[in-house]
Design a protein around this nucleic acid. Sequence first.
DNA 1: CTTGACCTTATTGTTGCTATAACCTTTATA
DNA 2: TATAAAGGTTATAGCAACAATAAGGTCAAG
Lengths: 276, 276
Amino acid sequence: MDRLTIGQMSKLNNVSEQTLRYYDKIGILKPIEVDNFTGYRYYSMKQCARLDMIQYLKSLGMRLKDIEVQLKTYDTKLIKRFLEEKGRSIDSEIEVLKHQKNALQKALRNFERYETSPPDGTIVLEYIEKRFIYRYNMSTNFYDYGIEIYEEQLRKLKMDMERDGLRQTYFCNAGSTVAYEQIINRNFISNDLFVFVDENVPKNLIRSIKAGTYLCIYCSRFEQEIPYANRLLDEISERDYTIDGDYICEVITDLPDLMDGERGMFFKLQIPVKIT
Amino acid sequence: MDRLTIGQMSKLNNVSEQTLRYYDKIGILKPIEVDNFTGYRYYSMKQCARLDMIQYLKSLGMRLKDIEVQLKTYDTKLIKRFLEEKGRSIDSEIEVLKHQKNALQKALRNFERYETSPPDGTIVLEYIEKRFIYRYNMSTNFYDYGIEIYEEQLRKLKMDMERDGLRQTYFCNAGSTVAYEQIINRNFISNDLFVFVDENVPKNLIRSIKAGTYLCIYCSRFEQEIPYANRLLDEISERDYTIDGDYICEVITDLPDLMDGERGMFFKLQIPVKIT
DNA sequence: CTTGACCTTATTGTTGCTATAACCTTTATA
DNA sequence: TATAAAGGTTATAGCAACAATAAGGTCAAG
């Protein structure tokens, strides 16, 4: 029982035989003896110590190459630096995962919202809470062109977001606005593209949209936006409401709808109103 | 400007050209047109939507293969299941990282402790706080044999730990005990191997070691343990102290010392005493 | 002597790209 | 019109740490 076969060694240490062969191959754990004829590997009990060390360093997140260096040099400064560095990188990994979790939940909520949305054409009066947006000021009025210019402007928004260090996950919740001065005259001149963001985005990058009562219409096709918005405006004058701010076109979700390779969207067109 | 070359597409979307070629190859984003003679790829603006979707799903942690399926089927149930499942796996990943962070910090503390430890042979009187251990009851007295039996017993401890779901990171802080009844007669019969653990390990798996005053000696060689322990016992009778519990042999750290492939350890031998 | 457990090497696959080499096309300028 | 720079192509290897598989040799017991 003074030499162990690879199978015994693997069972003793809860490591697969493959792994032991791999460690032999890359040279971080060589058997004390290898039979010249059969190629059989034999390990000693004492080698468990080295395997322990390998597993321990691995559990700290060290890569095998670095472990190899470590086991050759025993340089404590090196390992200390590694540990400190690794500590920081773990922190940032945790951050990333938390954001991912957040994005997941947001995606699920978006789904719910999409699935429970009223059908195309429905008009509702709704109170909406204060919201925050990150916006991109457009030079071109995409209503004058088609979806391709819209896409182009979206790209610019996206690049701005990247530049400002905003998570791409916000990008799934976009929209556009038409200023109050324009919408009251039924001039569809878009000024901003935006994404909804959380409050924890740096204040200087975002703007708020005031809470209030909105008359909204749901719309499922890009080309229908202007006719539907006009229906909304008609309804507002019929009901004797007063327009109380910028027009907002919100993309509810474009996740499940990507038809013919084209962005298939579901919109919620919104105009803040005063009821007199 | 209605068709984009791969370079334009890549810049517009902040994706490398390689990546776009890769996406083409695996079939999740094919250019609308490929020149038959030159092989040049041409994309349309509209395809950005699909790329957005890919990046969005990727940011949620989906793999490209799954994204491919998703973009083919648009099965919302599938993606919902994925999101829920992923949410859980992220939680556990975060848990793992937190433990890793913990282990890192522990490793750093261990280093400090090792480096600031008094030299071999030093005797100190020390108050030590309450500690918790996970132990393995041995059938063989390793003092009767050598380091190989010790290693063997360590393996058993390790397998028990695994069975009980304890992190391997605890394994770097091991030790052994000799019962009070034995140590007062200078009988070196080891009964337990153990590892120090946190309080957050399930109570039923661990035992506590009471706080108190310990006379300790530092020792840097495995074979020196018994002579050094005897010096400790001599010192206790010289000073007229009373032995107040089990003898503990604690491994301070075996991280930087792995000589000749053998476990090179630094011990702190401890006997709880009453000073009358 | 056979059977089954155990060992060997060699190769491929995993994931999402990046890097490199060797070479062809387009576009702008001299 | 020649040329050079910028931009495009394919093909292959590399990363990290193994797992899976195939095809075959060895060992120990009954």
